[in-house]
Amino acid sequence: MQFEYKIKGGDFSEAGTISSKLKKILKQLNIDNKIIKKVVIALYEAEVNVIAHAYNGKVNIDIDTEKIEINIKDKGPGIENIAKAMEKGFSTATSKVREMGFGAGMGLPNIKKNSDKLDIKSKVSEGTNLKIITFLNK
């Protein structure tokens, strides 16, 4: 089963809208609460990343009986050094973004922590693709 959503860069007021929709779907599918929590946190962080750094993005969610696969593609500056971006506390967010309570450098580490498989592909000044996989039967 597939779902597709769009994200607009810079629109912080909308952060969490898609993860909230996904939460509703997963509740209806009777997915374990702990898994729901993980998936929702991971997607929320990914949403914030697109909003904070990119121009726009697209979220594709694919759910089957084995796993939840979330693909987030954005058009934006891309990540120069993925290994560095994965470090806790590392952030390229502007001070203004930080003042708003975002950009603490926990985004990608948090996504990794709350997913079973994380795949990042990025091209500088083009954009970033994130693939987050959560397995349902562990």
Binding site: M1, I25, Q28, L29, N30, T65, L136
Partner: peptide, 21 residues
């Protein structure tokens, strides 16, 4: 006492959700 779940069985729940869509 969740009223939200469509089915205990995930396969069935996905089927039902697709039907709803």
């Amino acid at each position: 006492r969740s009223m939200i779940k469509l089915d205990e069985n995930l396969d069935q729940a996905i089927n039902k959700m697709e039907k709803i869509q």
